[in-house]
Design a protein around this nucleic acid. Structure first.
Lengths: 214, 214, 214, 214
DNA sequence: GATGAATGAGAATTCATTCAT
DNA sequence: TATGAATGAATTCTCATTCAT
């Protein structure tokens, strides 16, 4: 097969993205290294030149994804021109209000997936995202829009519920069921943060028409 | 090898329990059928006489566990002599108030575990336990101690958060961290159900002395 | 493929013998597990049911061979009806005088072979055979036919020279060359043990015609 | 990576020496080309620029070593100012009498090593050194200090025994055991060459103080 | 019911070697 | 000369499952 040379960065990313796609579509354990390299059109050795094992790519995938999500969340959190409420709305909602970047979060957090990918990324999401969101909650406390005693712990619980329940790969909810769960979630979030009722009511505004999940 | 004959029920249960133990300790995919039968001291064929595949046992394990939890939860839920508040306290807390059975719930729901077993049983827990708890919430609504619009959805979110976050196998929380998260959880539950503040404050009452989270 | 069940002993031996044959013919590293099982007509798993790795069989082969050689040597050594001279002649020579069993030694010690098999079995031969032969030398000392101060060490040197040089796989000697080396060896042995000249002169008697060096 | 240019001779020697070191420490088959170039800090291509295969280096290593040993042995053998006895003593002993060069022989012949390297170099040693030593034996015959009928064959047997047994990598002898084997060896050599008793008794003379077995 | 030898598809991984730069 | 990304055949090993006894 003709040898196509790429920069290490390109190749590594290519492997990560190909593997991710296949893992998501079929599940980690169903996908062999063979199938990954076939999809890419490279040789076995190329895979093992970049990753020392199949599991190694799995980690790389999660890291890569989370890096992006976290980077964006940090950007939002550190933006001094936004108030806490706007930040939370941006990050916690699946809102399509914002720019492309913002949309990405939602997409990433809610892709259909498989067990291995799922649990790892759920855990990482909670662990890495919660401190950032907690900081926003603290900002909100100061701005008097929230009144939350244990911001980190509260955020962790809320994120956990959201991640685990709404991650549509695990539960097989219909659109209607998803919609109802979002409403409930929104209310619980408001109550947990002691925000004013309706603060996070983007359901009715932004998402009511034809939520595409998947 | 001396042939030890047991009743089919005993054998099946023995396999379930041995497999469960090993799966929990090492993870489903790391445990081979070989290791299960070695641990039991029986032959390969015996395993396949009782279960048609390795995955079959996994299901059996989850079913077996959940059956017990659900059965107990239903008993509590259907007990006409208890009010909703008491029922919720019994089932949602890790309370040691009650009899052995009640304690079991908590134990089962919070064992250290592994990915595969975990996710399956988390999902099953949410799916099978939420209708029962929702019924109690409805009872609570009627008794005016709760005021929850979408009981099932609310309960699902709360259970998800609880299952996923508190399941100490996934996150590596210290005792202190667990304690804080329980307090937060309790407050969120109260708020989500619109219960009176302190309703579920079993932390201070029942568990204050040295929470053992097995 | 139709399943042919054998007793574990048979199968294990079958694997050992098949592997040995192939290793000898082609060299350890050239032979894959695949080729062994193909030759036997069994499945991969069968191989790994009996041996945990390819190297494991190599050890088993050497052990198996040496066991036989040692067993026979011990039989000779412990035979109280033979004098030391006869024993030494039986064991050190490639003499075909004796029974089938005796012949075996020579055959085993001088098969064409390959590196891995070779060195392992050479070392093992020296280590396991030398104490037995040393005992015979001691007997010879008492019978006044030998006069050897350090029997074990002497025997080890002689065995080493014999094993290493005469092991026709390593050096590519012609029949004539082999013959000359045997004569020299015989004389050195006599001198080393301080035996009477000609004691081990079986060259001229027994082997002169048609040396088979497989 | 900064490109360090060396003369071809330097590079080639560097590869030989690095490979030799690694082969000796870990065994030929355990060492990959990768590990050799990593140790050197050069690229894969560099290795294959100088050697056409991994096995090629193995040969080069043995050749390189033997060349040195043989060159020195020839020097000694061809030195018309020395008598045969002195020559033999210089070459067969592990004597530290002589110059650095002479010491080298012993060092090289007795390094701890691994199977592949070992056997190849043992064989080569025997094959290439024996004619040289045989010539000295012939000189000794003429000088009436030896009386050996088949010098080459005798030397080959003696070298084989010495190489194989004393090569401390294969057998795991203690210092004491090595010492005893050297005494025995020395006596056998004397007897085999029909030299006067004590001719090669350098044990007591030269090595008695603190046998170093490198 | 129980045994355990046998199966074999399939996986992961290695690594000597090549070659575009 | 030198680099290091890319190759891919070959190999070892795993393990869920079957089946003759």
């Amino acid at each position: 097969m003709s040898r196509i040379v790429k920069t290490p960065e390109e190749r590594k990313l290519e492997i990560i993205q190909t593997a991710e796609k296949l893992f998501r579509e079929n599940g980690y354990s169903k996908i062999s290294v063979e199938s990954i390299i076939k999809e890419m059109g490279v040789a076995k050795g190329t895979f093992y030149y970049y990753f020392k094992s199949k599991e190694d790519v799995l980690e790389a995938i999660v890291d890569y994804e989370l890096d992006q999500v976290v980077k964006m969340a940090e950007q939002v959190a550190n933006d001094t021109s936004m108030d806490a409420l706007t930040k939370m709305q941006l990050l916690l909602s699946n809102s399509h209000i914002g720019d492309e970047n913002t949309k990405e979060i939602a997409v990433h957090l809610h892709l259909p997936a498989n067990r291995e990918l799922h649990e790892i990324s759920n855990i990482q999401t909670v662990l890495r995202l919660s401190p950032i969101l907690a900081k926003i909650v603290e900002q909100g406390n100061e701005e008097k829009v929230f009144n939350t005693k244990l911001p980190l712990e509260t955020i962790q619980f809320l994120l956990s519920g959201s991640q685990f329940l709404m991650d549509s790969g695990l539960f097989d909810f219909s659109e209607q069921e998803i919609f109802e769960r979002r409403i409930v979630m929104q209310e619980i979030i408001e109550k947990a943060l002691s925000a004013k009722r309706g603060t996070f009511d983007f359901m009715n505004n932004n998402l009511s028409k034809g939520e595409k999940n998947e």
